[in-house]
Nucleic acid binder design. Structure first.
Length: 815
DNA sequence: TCAGGCACCGTTTTT
DNA sequence: CGGTGCCTGA
């Protein structure tokens, strides 16, 4: 569909781009099948381009074709392209798709996450500012452990500072590019809590530096610092990357924004007035000079779901201000979902005010209705999901084309139990992570101890793993000796006889020192020779064998230790795999890779099974059938979000992301009761349910059925109030910042869900009992199932037939 | 030093 | 409920 009237080339800025015209001719296959806005997004050439890409609008396709077209027309060498994605998986996919478009010419591009790209830059430049190229990366677990120690040392708990709270505050500040000093300058330092916090923040940063380590936030922040402090270094990268493309731009935080900003400055523009006021870096919007790299960003502010982690939606909403003259292309046609699904999505998201109007549409037709289901308990809900999956499977839908989403990881358990029982093959994405398991962290700590001897945390971790009899006391004497002698903790181990500990301990320490040295010889041979590709695998095996780690697990009679051994075997397998893929990869490269992978990366293994994941993990994926479970108040929107500014709106976007993952079928389900930490609580339908136009939902069992108020009109659950204005009122009715009192939303259910739930206490029913129901009249109990608050009576009513009732809350009485 | 028992606690999302 | 941290006794 080549539209001759659509200008292929818009506003080329320099002579360099003139080849694009020639390019467009040879690019027919790249442009085939694109709609006009997509075409423009691929072919526009200019300093800055914002592609507002609604869900399912083909943005990955557009992005990859844009890259391919730049390369094929020789407007850019692969090495001049920097494409940033949010996850490793997305990066891999993009690389693959570009390769399939233009083949090996794709070699040499940087397609990676922010974090990986920064690691690559920092490895090269670290020695410029007090780190070495063998720095290690602290994941959030590592940094939490360090912060925990520091909070304790500074007695932060006496000031109400918790490790978790301190960690998240530090992280937020780093995302704003603040450091301890700049924060201290604008904080209220007469507040003792603030003083202690600043102390801990500062100490944390010194410890990281001492350990030659960066945490996740530092990877970005320190790269920005590097570029600002060393303009000539920044210029090298500005000269190199001529085309910068950023995916999921709505999820960038301030530090990431600043990084992109630094890279897209004109070369040699080191004047860079960096005003720091209260930790916030202020930029004057400056015209992008001719020499600046061209920037393409893709995003959808309706899918911004990481504000809690510092993502700043303004980065995308104010793109045109930041990059004056930027071209904006809007992709609204959806190629993924049916119209029913899109209508639901549009209706829900239109309740967020202060957003740019955008309406997804498709030409594939209405499709199936959305199916709703309300279970008595989360098990009941899970059973429905399992049954439905089975019947879809029978009609030919592959398991791998179905997914179940939930808001919190803990919800996966109930689903899992039922799936196992129902023999539904499933795979949980995310969840407990391989690289966060204790034995894996131990093994990696051994590698870190070799790769980065400055990293004291890693050494302390393995000091007594397996048990060597080295406890707190001994650990402290090693640390003290190191401090006295002004040597590192690692070097102190080599002097075990001087530590003033008993002979047994001396031997244990000397033994540890020896195997670390031996592993170092294998993995990091000194005299310039290259370590063989297998070095990491060999070194790791040696460490685990000679340290006695394997033996300890084998000897153990804890049944879990068998699984731990298997996990370690798998880790060794990972090192082999790494060696195959990176023949020249060092142990340091291996550790970087491992630190930066998320578990979403095993997505490929999901073939043949249903995918279970959180709504956050679901972003960017799509499935034929999607089950969105736990659509309840306090879950989505999550109760914690209620007090956060913009929280409810973000929850709505999360719900929207979930809906828009579905291609053909969407199920919305909830439970009337939900057990959390051992207690059964009564759940209420989410306000978002009511935002979905009622005619789109086909309720198999509505909330009304289950709590038996107005159950006879179940389909009418979210029918509009009679007499009220019709469809027009949906999009325009807005509650302040979504903070409308919960009851308002609930009251709008015509057959209202009681805000105060009736409680029948310990009403005991047995089969054969006669009962009277407020709405259904009299009936006879056939059976009672379930336990405690979840007991369900199966009742045959004289007039309305069989119903299942939750005994605890149904409006019933024994006759 | 360390295993085991017990109390308590917090409960979201993750590169 | 499950994990963590603290305390005890050996």
């Amino acid at each position: 569909m080549t539209d001759a009237s659509t200008p292929l080339i818009v506003g080329s800025v320099t002579g360099r781009f003139d080849k694009a015209d020639h390019a467009s001719r040879s690019d027919d296959d790249l442009l085939a099948g694109l709609n006009p806005p997509q075409l423009e997004a691929v072919t526009y050439r200019g300093p800055a381009l914002l592609i507002v890409a609604g869900a399912g609008s083909g943005k990955t396709s557009v992005l990859t074709r844009r890259i391919a077209s730049l390369l094929r027309s020789r407007e850019a060498w692969p090495s001049q392209i920097l494409a940033i994605t949010f996850t490793n998986k997305a990066a891999g996919e993009m690389r693959e798709r570009v390769r399939s478009l233009i083949g090996d010419r794709a070699e040499g591009m940087w397609i990676s996450t922010f974090h990986s790209a920064c690691v690559r830059i920092l490895r090269r430049e670290a020695q410029q500012f007090g780190f070495t190229k063998s720095f290690t990366i602290y994941d959030s677990g590592d940094s939490r452990a360090l912060i925990k120690r520091l909070v304790k040392e500074h007695e932060g708990d006496a000031f109400g500072l918790t490790p978790a709270g301190t960690q998240s505050r530090i992280s937020k500040l780093k995302n704003e590019l603040a450091d301890a000093e700049s924060y201290a300058r604008q904080a209220n330092m007469s507040d003792p809590v603030e003083r202690v916090f600043v102390e801990i923040f500062g100490a944390y940063q010194r410890e990281l530096q001492k350990a030659n380590a960066f945490d996740f936030d530092d990877l970005i922040g320190q790269t920005v610092y590097l570029f600002r402090a060393f303009p000539h270094v920044a210029d090298q990268y500005r000269r190199r990357f001529r085309h910068i493309l950023v995916d999921e731009y709505q999820d960038t935080n301030h530090a990431q924004y600043a990084l992109i900003h630094e890279l897209t400055r004109p070369i040699g523009s080191d004047a860079a007035p960096v005003a720091s006021s209260g930790g916030m870096m202020i930029f004057e919007p400056e015209p992008v000079g001719e020499d600046a790299a061209s920037l393409t960003v893709v995003g959808d502010s309706d899918q911004s779901i990481y504000a809690f982690r510092g993502a700043d939606i303004r980065n995308i909403t104010e793109f045109e201000r930041d990059y004056p003259g930027a071209k904006v292309v809007l992709l609204e046609q959806n190629y993924r979902s049916t119209q029913n699904i899109l209508s639901a999505a549009n209706a829900v998201i239109s309740n967020n005010f202060d957003r740019k109007e955008k309406r997804l549409w498709t030409d594939v037709g209405a499709g199936e209705p959305i199916i709703g289901f309300t279970g008595y308990s989360q098990h009941d809900e899970a059973q429905f999901v399992a049954d439905e999956i089975e019947s879809l499977h029978k009609t030919g839908v592959d398991y791998s084309q179905m997914a179940v989403f939930y808001r919190t990881n803990s919800q996966s358990r109930a689903l899992e139990e039922i799936f196992i029982r129902s023999a539904v093959p499933y795979k949980i994405m995310g969840g407990t992570k391989f690289y966060e398991r204790a034995e894996i962290k131990d093994a990696l700590a051994y590698l870190v101890a070799v790769a980065n001897p400055a990293d004291e945390m890693a050494l302390r971790r393995i000091l007594n793993r397996p048990r060597r009899g080295i406890g707190d006391v001994t650990e402290t004497s090693i640390a003290r000796y190191a401090a006295d002698q002004q040597i590192t903790f690692r070097d102190a181990l080599a002097n075990s006889s001087a530590l003033g500990v008993g002979p047994k301990l001396q031997a244990a320490i000397a033994q540890l020192d020896a195997i670390l040295a031996e592993a170092t010889a294998i993995m990091l041979p000194s005299t310039g020779e290259l370590a063989p590709p297998t070095a990491v695998a060999e070194g790791l095996t040696l460490l685990l064998n000679k340290s006695g780690y394997f033996d300890a697990l084998r000897r153990s009679r804890d049944p879990q230790d068998e699984a731990r051994l298997e996990n370690l075997d798998e880790l060794v397998a990972v090192t082999r795999e790494f060696a195959r893929n990176n023949p020249e990869g060092t142990v340091i490269d291996f550790l970087s890779e491992v630190a930066l992978v998320a578990d979403a990366d095993d997505l490929d293994d999901a073939s043949g099974s249903v995918s279970l994941m959180t709504l956050h993990t679901a972003k960017g994926l799509e499935f034929d059938a999607v089950f969105l479970t736990g659509v309840e108040e306090d879950l989505i929107p999550h109760r914690i979000s209620a007090n956060e500014p913009g929280g409810p709106a973000e929850e709505r976007r999360l719900f929207y992301v979930g809906i828009t993952r579905a291609r053909k079928r969407l199920y919305l389900s909830l439970a009337m009761t939900r057990a959390q930490f051992g207690e059964v609580t009564v759940a209420m339908p989410s306000r978002f349910l009511q935002e979905v136009p009622s005619e789109l939902i086909d309720w198999r069992q509505s909330p009304g059925d289950v709590n038996s108020r107005g159950g006879s009109r179940s389909r009418a659950l979210n029918a509009r109030p009679s007499g009220g204005s019709d469809s027009g009122s949906w999009g325009s009715k807005r509650y302040g910042d979504d903070l409308a009192p919960k009851s308002t939303a609930i009251d709008k259910f015509p057959n209202r869900i009681p805000a105060k739930v009736r409680d029948n206490g310990d009403l005991v029913l047995a089969s054969g009992d006669r009962i009277r129901h407020d709405d259904f009249g009299e009936g006879r109990v056939d059976a009672v199932t379930g336990e405690g608050a979840k007991r369900v009576a199966h009742v045959r009513f004289d007039t309305v037939g069989a119903k299942k009732l939750l005994i605890k809350i149904a409006p019933i009485a024994k006759i």
